[in-house]
Design a protein around this nucleic acid. Structure first.
Lengths: 246, 246
DNA sequence: CGTAAAGTTGAATTCTTTCAAACACGGTGG
DNA sequence: CCACCGTGTTTGAAAGAATTCAACTTTACG
């Protein structure tokens, strides 16, 4: 019964080919020990949880776009990461401690409450390994952003961010050729890269003038992938590696 | 036999109270299935492995100081992280693929070849959970650095880095009061934070003039912890959380 | 339609880099 | 023992990048 509903649940999910989901789905279809995941709708601009709040397990983003944010002591907002459909939400060293970051939806989104993954680990080592792998991917992605924030000028930073998001979306099939949804505001870009809104604006203007990208109404088009890729350099490689492993 | 040698091995290790080591030691003392770890000396300025090389499992740093580095397309070196004694070395999404970064010793160091942790995971879920936790700590630390590189000026960046390293060393008992070893050159600091050597020099000069720190001959002294902490802000909290969990 | 939020532009200031040149120190070989 | 060399550190001056402040335009949305 439970098992059957689980089958139905995951087999209808558009994300059931990525990351942790296939492994979870397989286990849920075979065992009734674990609760079936639950869907939680998360309207745009609404927080899933706030920094400092007690945490309750992990989520997987099913639809939409979620930002992890934190405030620096100077009152500036740092966006830690954009969480895209299929990715884990809420992982941190102390899983049951206060949330390190806030999680806010940019679009109307749907999150999926993952089963108790840590419990699942004891019976199913493959889940543990997948979790280790997923964490390692998060680390690598953050290291990429750190590198690109550290040693580059504004133009390269923004080009990198756009290309990275494009690749991650495309990998998940959330693209229409070179067109991808792009719900981030210029302020969101600024808070991700550590720039000012004004400087982001000027730099985007240049990128548009150079016919590298087009961006309005939250729709991004990569007009010249080759030039953009050259501008950004080879730094995207590790991501390919991540993705191939999925 | 093997089991006994393992007991001797880990029980003599100065790092056997931190991170993964206690769990590994316990398992090695009970089972002869896994090989005892091996010590590999790593002289100063020598690479443990180079970016792009094929990887062979994980290491744990036993003594010394190792840097993970990568080169950007502009020929600039980015230091991803300082690896301190007790920490894992070589973790990445594709464990058997080419190394994402180079690992180089700053001092004469000793690394410890970990047993096949992934294999261990299947029989011992607690290792898997520890691995997930260790990965999450790495992610959090990287996110901290990213945040501090993004939204701060040079003075704050350097103050943050110094305080972060001090805390991490102190947690491992590698300190003498407010004095810690500090084998990083000014160029290393620059390559960690994305600044120029020259600007690091000027900024360090100011921090010394303000009597916040003292730094010569690779020995760092925190002269005014309170002021430094105030300057850096509350951003260090997550690290405490990491450490408490160990 | 009106208001709030997001985007755009200009000019002045601040921070960081770049270029150029010394200086200090440790180690090496004569 | 000292001269020499290389690495790492220090300092100055000019150029470049990003921020700040201020004002204005456009877009989104009830």
């Amino acid at each position: 019964m439970k098992a059957n509903s689980s089958i139905t649940f995951c087999s209808n999910c558009p994300r059931n080919h990525f990351g942790l989901c296939p492994s979870i789905a397989k286990i849920l279809s075979q065992e009734s020990e674990f609760h079936s995941p639950k869907l939680v709708p998360l309207p745009a601009k609404q927080y899933l949880y706030h920094q400092g709040e007690q945490r309750h397990g992990l989520y997987i983003l099913r639809e939409g776009w979620v930002l992890l944010t934190t405030m620096t002591k100077l009152g500036k907002r740092q966006i830690i990461r954009s969480v895209l459909p299929g990715e884990i939400l809420g992982s941190q060293p102390d899983l049951h401690g206060p949330a390190l970051y806030s999680a806010i939806a940019l679009q109307n989104s749907i999150v999926c409450t993952a089963p108790d993954l840590l419990k699942m680990c004891t019976a199913h080592p493959e889940i543990a390994l997948k979790l280790v792998w997923a964490e390692a991917c998060e680390t690598t992605l953050t290291e990429l952003y750190m590198t690109n924030i550290a040693h580059r000028d504004a133009r390269e930073k923004i080009a990198f961010m756009i290309l990275e998001l494009y690749q991650r979306l495309k990998f998940r099939g959330i693209n229409n050729g070179y067109i991808v949804p792009f719900p981030l505001s210029q302020e969101d870009i600024a808070d991700t890269l550590g720039l000012t809104t004004i400087h982001v604006n000027r730099t985007l203007h240049k990128l548009r003038q150079e016919n590298l990208i087009s961006l309005h109404k939250h729709e991004l088009t990569i007009l010249d992938y080759e030039k953009l890729y050259t501008l950004v350099g080879m730094e995207l490689k590790p991501l390919d590696t991540c993705d191939i492993l999925t």
